Computed example of a mutant assay.
Amino acid sequence: MKHFLMAGVIGAAVLAAGAATAECREVDAAMLALPLHAFDQTGQGWRSLDAEGCERQTAEAIRRYRDLNADALGAGADTLLWHEAQLRAAAGETEEAIRLMLRSREQDSDEFRPYTDATIAFLRGDREALIAARERLVSLPKPEAFARAAARYAETYPDHPPLSWPLNLDVVDRLIACFGQPYREAYSCEAPVAWNDD
């Protein structure tokens, strides 16, 4: 469920460009003791640490949280793995990001694997695999429960763009349009989508 819950959120919180910060905030004991939702989905948790240039430190905060709360996380661990992986990719730690994404992928349902595969293909510099993952993503049938889930998402996150199906297609299209750029830049690039080789 990681991508379903987070579609549209991660772009602003993790990878939005901003002014470089001279100093990165440190995670404290109170933050590490937060319940999973508060730590992962609100401004009380790791998102309060993230700033341009602080991705590595923020990823380390997530790793520490995972280590300290391993017994209580259950299915929530894959969401944290994914966010840590994205931060490591944004920090240029490509091999560690791929390793974490592959671990997270083990928990993915069929509708989320194409997005994960597309991201890994981008990080590996494999444009052909990236486009193939996009094709798998657009071929997914819309789940019957999607409209209800999208309505709940809109209520919970009124300041974020609404969900559209398939999830994360916009991200994958940006990765294709800005292929070869660093992940941080490609994730939020505004280049026109021109991925078709025709």
Results as ranks from 00 to 15, higher is better:
Phe112Tyr: 09
His37Pro: 07
Asp110Phe: 04
Pro166Met: 06
Phe122Asp: 00
Ala191Gln: 12
Asn196His: 08
Pro192Cys: 06
Leu32Glu: 08
Leu175Pro: 04
Ile176Glu: 15
Arg152Pro: 03
Ala12Lys: 12
Tyr157Glu: 02
Gly74Asn: 01
Pro182Glu: 09
Ala16Tyr: 03
Tyr153Gln: 09
Ala20Asn: 13
Tyr65Ile: 05
Ala77Ser: 13
Asp67Glu: 15
Cys178Met: 01
Ala149Lys: 15
Leu169Gly: 00
Ala118Lys: 00
Ala191Cys: 09
Arg105Ser: 13
Asp71Ala: 14
Leu87Ile: 01
Gly11Ser: 05
Leu140His: 02
Ile10Arg: 11
Ile10Met: 13
Glu135Ser: 11
Gly53Met: 10
Asp67Ala: 15
Ala38Pro: 00
Ala59Asp: 03
Tyr183Asn: 01
Ser48Leu: 07
Glu96Leu: 06
Val27Arg: 04
Pro192Ser: 03
Ser164Leu: 12
Ala12Gln: 13
His3Met: 11
Arg174Tyr: 00
Met6Asp: 14
Tyr187Cys: 05
Ala38Lys: 02
Arg88Leu: 14
Leu130Trp: 10
Leu163Ser: 07
Met1Glu: 14
Ser109Leu: 08
Ser48Ile: 04
Leu34Met: 11
Asp126Pro: 08
Gln44Asn: 02
Leu100Cys: 09
Glu111His: 04
Tyr187Thr: 10
Ala132Glu: 06
Ser48Pro: 14
Ala132Tyr: 00
Arg174Cys: 01
Glu185Tyr: 06
Asp40Met: 12
Thr119Trp: 11
Asp28Val: 01
Trp165Phe: 09
Phe122Gln: 00
Glu185Gln: 13
Lys142Trp: 05
Cys24Gln: 12
